[in-house]
Simulated assay, not measured.
Amino acid sequence: MRGFRPGLVPTLVVAVLVPLMVCLGFWQLSRGEYKRVLMQQYAERRVAPPMDSTELAQTTDPAFRVVELQGHFDVEHSILLDNRQHDGQVGVELLQPFLDRATGAWLLVNRGWLPWPDRRTPPVFSTPEQPVSVQAWVYVAPGATFQLHADPVAAPWPRLVTAIEPDKLWAELGRSGFSYELRQQGGPGAYRTDWPVVSMGPEKHLGYAVQWFAMAAALFGLFLYLGWHNAGRPHGKHHESNQHV
């Protein structure tokens, strides 16, 4: 096309970056829709009547369902989930195995967040010694937890970790247990339990999608301008020959 000369390098850059930016924009839209459905499901199931623990094993889709539990906590195998923040304070979440009396199954119950301002001393927590009745909801993570490095195997208890993997815990302890974390809803032994459902809401994904689409449009617009601008400039040799006529 004689009236459009953007140059080889700009053409290659645009050919690579514009499709990539558009794909990232649509990916953000899909993630936002997924989070929207997830939050809607969470809201619906949190207001539903609690289910009995005997029904939990037969449930094909347990995410966010509230369960009634009766039993006791295992204080000897406490887990501290590191790098948790609330209101600008650093802390941990306390998780403990819970033996359900009705089913005889083990469940990993998150008792909530507690502050840990001084890492030179271990976090202080207490555990009910008597059997308790608690309500908890099933937490199914929207994706795998990012870790810079894997948690050490066979670390001492209470164990400080950066990711929760119930199946690995049950295998280590030689127990039969539920595959997902349950988050306690207040009640006996609960700490701070106001977790967000997702770390990034649908509106943020929409905002990122708009940014990717805007950058793609701006880059393509700059490419068009460069092509037309270069086409309007005379070639060097032709320009010199005109000056000598």
Rank of each mutant, 00 (worst) to 15 (best):
M1K: 09
F4D: 01
R5K: 12
P6S: 08
V9K: 06
P10S: 04
P10Y: 07
V14E: 02
A15Q: 06
A15N: 07
V18C: 08
L20H: 06
W27P: 01
W27Q: 00
Q28R: 08
Q28M: 05
S30Q: 14
V37K: 15
V37R: 15
V37Y: 11
L38T: 13
M39A: 04
Q40C: 05
Y42W: 15
Y42V: 04
A43P: 02
P49Y: 01
T54L: 14
E55F: 09
T60I: 11
D61C: 05
V66C: 01
V75W: 06
V75I: 08
L80M: 06
L81E: 00
N83Q: 09
N83V: 07
R84C: 04
H86W: 14
G88N: 12
V90L: 13
E93D: 09
E93L: 01
L94N: 03
L95Y: 03
T103R: 03
G104R: 08
A105T: 10
W106D: 03
W106P: 05
L108E: 03
N110S: 06
W113L: 00
P115S: 04
P115T: 01
W116N: 04
P117I: 12
D118N: 14
R119F: 00
R120D: 15
R120W: 09
P123A: 08
T127E: 09
E129L: 14
E129N: 14
P131W: 07
P131L: 10
G143R: 14
A144S: 13
T145N: 07
T145Y: 05
F146A: 08
F146Y: 12
L148C: 01
H149Q: 14
H149E: 13
A150S: 14
P152H: 03
V153A: 15
A154H: 14
A155C: 10
A155V: 10
T162I: 05
A163P: 02
I164E: 02
L169G: 03
W170F: 05
W170Q: 08
A171D: 15
L173E: 09
F178A: 05
F178W: 11
S179G: 15
L182F: 04
Q185R: 14
Q185F: 09
Q185Y: 06
G186C: 09
P188R: 13
P188Q: 12
Y191M: 12
W195D: 13
V197Q: 01
M200Q: 13
G201A: 13
G201S: 12
G201F: 08
G201H: 11
K204T: 13
H205F: 07
L206W: 12
G207E: 03
Y208Q: 02
V210C: 12
V210F: 13
Q211V: 03
A214D: 00
A214P: 00
A218P: 02
A218T: 12
F220M: 02
L222F: 10
L222W: 14
L224K: 04
N230W: 00
R233D: 04
P234H: 07
H239M: 11
H239C: 09
S241M: 14
V245H: 15
V245I: 14
